[in-house]
Design a binder for these strands. Structure first.
Length: 855
RNA sequence: GCCCGGGUGGCGAAACUGGUAGACGCAGGGGACUUAAAAUCCCCAGGCUGAAAGGCCAUACAGGUUCGAGUCCUGUCCCGGGCACCA
C-alpha cells in the first residue's frame, strides 16, 4: 500500500473502475424501489463555480446514500443551454452563441466528470439541441390548439436607441445598459400560457407536498395570492353615456370610507383624460416611462392627478373624484381601486399628499379617529361606523350584507382574485427555442404542423444588440402558410428559457426517443424523488414546473400532477462583487480575485482598488455568484491542488446545505488534512498489530462510534450533511485514540467510517475499501446501522441546576427513577454548597438529562 | 415598498422535542520531532476576573412567557433571496 495519499492516482483509478462497469447507467429495474435524484441543471456559462460544486456534491451524496440503501437510483445531467449570456458573449467576442455554448458544455462536462459524480451521462441533454426543443414546439402547438397558449399584448422594456427589448437585468436605474437611454414601457403582442387556469389547483396541492420546505410553499402560496373580496362598480357618466368603473377590494366593509378612486396610467379612463388635458397626458407618459419591474414601481414616490371625472358611490350616491395614480397596477385586478385613506396605508399617504378627505368608517383598537401619522392599527378589522345602515356590523357580516346589496343593484358581486398572472413566454431574442407559429393574412396565427417540426434555429448568427436577429433574417421568417399555402411570415420570437426547464426532468427518462416527448420510461422514473437546487428558484422555476406537469397530465403524457416529491433548497454561495463605472456609463464588473480590499478594525470595507492599475472600484455588496457580476470562484484550482474528494468534503463540511455560504478557501486545508489522516490510519491498520482484547477503552470507543453513527443517520434524514462530515471526523478521532488496542473494534469502526464517508468522498473510500479487503466495491456494501447493544450505557451523567443555573454534575445508575435521583441530589455536596439554609420549593427531574432544584 | 429566510467565539459551525451554549474544523498560541523548514504529532483556547478552585457576563438589540430560552412570543436593527425578460 502507498505510504502517501495521492488523490490524483486514486481518483483516476476509481473513476475508470466506475466507467468500465457503467456503474451509474441505470434502467427501469422493477426489482428495486426506484429513486430519481436530480440537481438543477446548470446554465453552461463557461466554467463551474462554487455554487455548482456545492449543488452537485449535495445531490451526489444523496444519490450515493440512497444507492447504498438498495434503491435503483437515477441521477442525470444536462444543460440549460439557451439564454441571454450566450448572446452577450457573442456580442463581446463575435462568436455565435451556439459555438460558445457548446464549447462551454465540453469544458464544464469535463469539470463535472473530474468531481466523480455518480451521473448517468448516457442521458445527457442540452435544451439548444433540436432533438430537445422540438418537443417544446410540439407541446406548444398542443396548448395553442386547446387555448392554453394564446396571444395578447404584454409590456416590455424598450430601449429607444438600440430599438430593442431589454431584459430586466439589462435595465440599470431605469436606463439601457448599453446605450444609457431612458427605458420606456412598450406594449407588444406576445404569447401567454394560461397558468391562471391552474391557480386553484397549484395552490391547493401545496398542502399535499410534505417533502417541500414550508418556506417555499409559503412563498408560492403568497405568489399565487388568492384573495376573496368583492368586485364592485362606481357608475360614472362619460360623454353622456353611463359607464361603470369596476374595482376589486378585499375590504368591502370600508366602502363608506372610499373618498376617491384611482386608476392605473394604462386604464381607459386615464387614456380618455390624457386626450383632454395635456398635463394629464404628460403625467400618464411619465408613468409609462421607466422599467417594468415591480420592485422599482413599488418604490416610486406615490403620485397622481385628478382626471376631472367624478363617479357615484354605489351605496351612498355621493360623488367622488377619479384620480390617475402611479401606484395602481394595470396587471392586477381591474387596474383601478377604490381608495379608503382611513384604513389603507398607501391611500392614507396619497390622501395626505393631495389633501383628499380621510373618513374613518371602522372602529379600530386605537379608537374611531385616524390622526396622522399612519398607524398599522387603522387597517385592522373592526365594527363599521359612519356607514349608514351597516353601522355595528363586524367585518364578515358587513362584507356579506354589502356584497348582496350591491348584487341586488347589479353593481357588485363576491369574487376570488388571484395575484398570479398568465405567463408571457415570448422573447424578442435570438438564442432560444423558436415559437412554432406562422402568421398568415388569410388564416391568422397557424401552428406549425407536427411533420414540419422542429422549426430550426439558424446557428451561425452573431447578434449585435439591436432589434431581434431573427426578424432581420428573411431566410428564416419567409415561409408559406401551412394551412392555405400562401406566402406567410414565421414568428420570430423565441420562448422564455423557463419553458425549457419546466419539463427537462421528465425528458431525462427517455432523452433518446425521437418519436415522443416522453414515453413509458418517464412513467417509471417520474416524479423526481429528490430535487436539489438553489433557493432563488423557490417561486418561478418550481411553480412553472408544477404547472407544466399538470399540462402534461392533461395532455395524457404522464399521469402524475407533481413533479418533485422532496425538495432541498440549497442556500446560495455568496461572494463579494465590485464594479467600475465606464466612461459610457456602463458597469464593468471586476473579478474579486483582482481586487485589493482595505478594511477597518471591525472588518468593514473602507476602500477597494483593482490590483492591475490601482483604479478605485465600487463595492456592490455580497451576492450570488454570477456570470453577470463576474464574481464566481472557479473550483478548478482547488480540484487540481487537493483532488475532488477534498473539494467535495469541504463543500459539504463548510455549512449545512440550506445555509447561505460566504465562500472562503480557508478551511480547505483541514479537509485535506483529514483525508490524509484517514489514509495514514488505514496504512497503519493494514500493517496490523493490535490485540483483539476487549477493554474499557474499546467498549467506550464502540459506544462512541455507534452513537456518532446513530446521530449521523438522523442528520442524513434531515439533510444536515455538514454534521455527517463531522461525524466521520469524530469516528476517525475515536479510532486514533484506540490505535493498537483492539483490532476487532478498529476494523468494525473503519468499515463504518468508510461506508458513512463514501457518498461524500467516494474515491478514497472506494480505494481503501478494496485495499483493506472489506469487499470489491464500497458502493454495493450495505449502509451502516448502529448496533443497539453498543449504545447501552449503565450510568448517566446528570446536570444539576439550581434555579436553572448549572452547578455541577452527578453520575448515577440509569436504573434510578426520579424519586431516587431527587433523594440523591438532596444529599449531595451541591445542595450543601449552593443552597445552604434556603428552602427547596421544587425539584424538576428530566429523565436521562438533568435535575433542577428550585429554591 | 411587498413576500420569504437568516443573525451563536477571530472565522465556518454544533446544540435531539424548551434542558450542560460553542461538538467538529479553520485561523492563532505553546510544545515535540528536525541542523532547519515543510509535513506530522501533543497541549491551550468565548469574554472579563482570579494563584487556583471558582465567580460573573455572553447566542444582533429591547422586552415577555417558563423552574429553565440560541430554541417560543412581541417589537427594533442589520444581512441575504424573490418580485414575473438573469438563470
Amino acid at each position: 500500500m502507498q505510504e502517501k495519499y495521492d488523490p490524483r492516482a486514486i481518483e483516476r483509478d476509481a473513476q475508470s473502475f466506475w466507467e468500465a462497469r457503467r456503474a451509474f447507467s441505470v434502467s427501469e429495474d422493477r426489482s428495486k424501489p426506484k429513486f430519481y435524484c436530480l440537481s438543477m441543471y446548470p446554465y453552461p456559462s463557461g466554467k463551474l463555480h462554487m455554487g455548482h460544486v456545492r449543488n452537485y456534491t449535495i445531490g451526489d451524496v444523496l444519490t450515493r446514500h440512497h444507492r447504498m440503501r438498495g434503491r435503483n437510483v437515477l441521477q442525470p445531467m444536462g444543460w440549460d443551454a439557451f439564454g441571454l449570456p450566450a448572446e452577450n458573449a457573442a456580442m463581446a467576442n463575435g462568436v455565435p452563441p451556439a459555438r460558445w455554448t457548446r464549447d462551454n458544455i465540453v469544458y464544464m462536462k469535463r469539470q463535472l466528470q473530474a468531481l466523480g459524480f455518480a451521473l448517468d451521462w448516457e442521458r445527457e441533454l442540452a435544451t439548444c439541441d433540436p432533438a430537445y426543443y422540438k418537443w417544446n414546439q410540439w407541446f406548444f402547438t398542443r396548448l395553442f390548439r386547446r387555448g392554453l397558449a394564446y396571444k395578447t399584448t404584454g409590456v416590455v422594456n424598450w430601449d429607444p436607441v438600440d430599438q430593442t427589448v431589454l431584459a430586466n437585468e439589462q435595465v440599470i436605474d431605469g436606463r439601457g445598459w448599453r446605450t444609457g437611454a431612458l427605458v420606456e414601457k412598450r406594449e407588444i403582442p406576445m404569447y401567454f400560457l394560461r397558468i391562471t387556469e391552474y391557480a386553484d389547483e397549484l395552490l391547493a396541492a401545496l398542502d399535499e407536498l410534505p417533502g417541500w420546505p414550508e418556506r417555499v410553499k409559503l412563498m408560492q402560496k403568497n405568489w399565487i395570492g388568492r384573495s376573496e373580496g368583492v368586485r364592485l362598480a362606481f357608475p360614472y357618466e362619460l360623454e353622456g353615456e353611463r359607464k361603470l368603473l369596476w374595482v376589486f377590494t378585499t375590504r368591502a366593509d370600508t366602502l363608506f370610507g372610499a373618498t376617491f378612486c384611482a386608476v392605473a396610467a394604462e386604464h381607459p379612463i386615464a387614456t380618455w383624460a390624457a386626450r383632454r388635458d395635456p398635463q394629464i397626458a404628460a403625467f400618464v407618459d411619465e408613468c409609462k416611462r421607466g422599467a417594468t419591474m415591480e420592485a422599482d414601481i413599488a418604490q416610486l414616490e406615490k403620485k397622481g392627478m385628478p382626471t376631472g371625472l367624478e363617479c357615484i358611490h354605489p351605496l351612498s350616491g355621493e360623488r367622488i373624484p377619479v384620480w390617475v395614480a402611479n401606484y395602481v397596477l394595470m396587471g392586477y385586478g381591474e387596474g383601478a381601486v377604490m381608495a379608503v385613506p382611513a384604513h389603507d396605508e398607501r391611500d392614507f399617504d396619497f390622501a395626505l399628499r393631495y389633501r383628499l378627505p380621510i373618513r374613518p368608517v371602522i372602529r379600530h383598537p386605537l379608537g374611531d379617529a385616524v390622526p396622522a401619522p399612519w398607524k398599522p392599527e387603522y387597517a385592522e378589522y373592526g365594527t363599521c361606523i359612519h356607514s349608514g345602515k351597516y353601522d355595528g356590523l363586524g367585518y364578515a357580516a358587513a362584507v356579506d350584507v354589502i356584497a348582496s346589496d350591491l348584487q341586488a343593484k347589479g353593481l357588485g358581486e363576491r369574487q376570488v382574485q388571484w395575484r398570479l398572472r398568465d405567463w408571457g413566454i415570448s422573447r424578442q431574442r435570438y438564442w432560444g427555442c423558436p415559437i412554432p407559429i406562422v402568421h398568415c393574412e388569410a388564416c391568422g396565427d397557424v401552428p406549425v404542423p407536427d411533420e414540419q417540426l422542429p422549426v430550426l434555429l439558424p446557428e451561425d448568427v452573431v447578434p449585435d444588440g439591436t432589434g431581434s436577429p431573427l426578424a432581420k433574417m428573411p431566410e428564416f421568417y419567409q415561409t408559406s402558410c401551412p394551412s392555405c399555402g400562401k406566402p406567410a411570415r414565421r414568428e420570430t420570437d423565441t420562448m422564455d428559457t423557463f419553458v425549457d426547464s419546466s419539463w427537462y426532468f421528465a425528458r431525462f427518462a427517455c432523452a433518446d426517443n425521437p418519436r415522443e416527448m416522453v414515453d413509458a420510461r418517464a412513467a417509471y422514473w417520474m416524479p423526481v424523488d429528490q430535487y436539489i437546487g438553489g433557493i432563488e428558484h423557490a417561486i418561478l422555476h418550481l411553480l412553472y414546473s408544477r404547472f407544466f406537469q399538470r399540462l402534461m397530465r392533461d395532455e395524457k403524457l404522464l399521469a402524475i400532477s407533481e413533479p418533485f416529491t422532496n425538495l432541498l433548497t440549497q442556500g446560495m454561495v455568496l461572494a463579494e462583487s465590485y464594479y467600475l463605472d465606464t466612461p459610457e456609463g456602463r458597469r464593468e464588473w471586476i473579478d474579486p480575485a483582482e481586487v485589493e480590499v482595505r478594511r477597518d478594525a471591525k472588518g468593514k470595507l473602507v476602500s477597494a482598488i483593482r490590483r492591475a492599475d490601482g483604479a478605485e472600484v465600487i463595492y456592490d455588496g455580497l451576492g450570488t455568484m454570477s456570470k453577470s457580476k463576474n464574481n464566481g470562484v472557479d473550483p478548478q484550482e482547488l480540484i487540481e491542488r487537493y483532488g475532488a474528494d477534498t473539494a467535495r468534503f469541504f463543500a459539504i463540511f463548510a455549512s449545512p446545505p440550506t445555509n447561505t455560504l460566504e465562500w472562503s478557501d480557508e478551511g480547505v486545508e483541514g479537509s485535506y488534512r483529514f483525508l490524509k489522516r484517514l489514509w495514514s490510519y488505514a496504512v497503519r491498520f493494514k500493517a496490523g498489530g493490535g490485540p483483539a482484547v476487549a477493554s474499557e477503552l474499546s467498549k467506550a470507543t464502540r459506544f462512541e462510534i455507534h452513537s456518532v453513527l446513530n446521530q449521523a443517520n438522523y442528520d442524513l434524514s434531515k439533510y444536515q450533511l455538514n454534521t455527517v462530515a463531522s461525524a466521520a471526523m469524530k469516528i476517525l478521532n475515536a479510532l486514533d485514540r484506540l490505535a493498537g488496542v483492539d483490532d476487532e473494534v478498529a476494523k468494525e469502526g473503519l468499515s463504518i467510517l468508510l461506508r458513512l464517508l463514501s457518498p461524500i468522498t467516494p474515491h478514497i473510500c472506494h480505494h481503501l475499501w478494496r485495499e483493506l479487503r472489506f469487499g470489491e466495491d464500497v458502493m454495493s456494501a450495505a449502509w451502516p446501522e448502529p448496533d443497539k447493544n453498543a449504545l447501552v450505557q449503565d450510568e448517566i451523567e446528570y446536570v444539576v441546576q439550581v434555579n436553572g443555573k448549572k452547578r455541577g454534575t452527578l453520575v448515577a445508575s440509569k436504573a434510578l427513577d426520579s424519586r431516587a435521583l431527587e433523594a440523591l441530589v438532596r444529599a449531595s455536596d451541591i445542595v450543601k454548597r449552593y443552597i445552604g439554609d434556603l428552602v427547596i420549593k421544587k425539584v424538576i427531574v428530566v429523565p436521562g438529562r438533568l435535575i433542577n432544584i428550585v429554591v
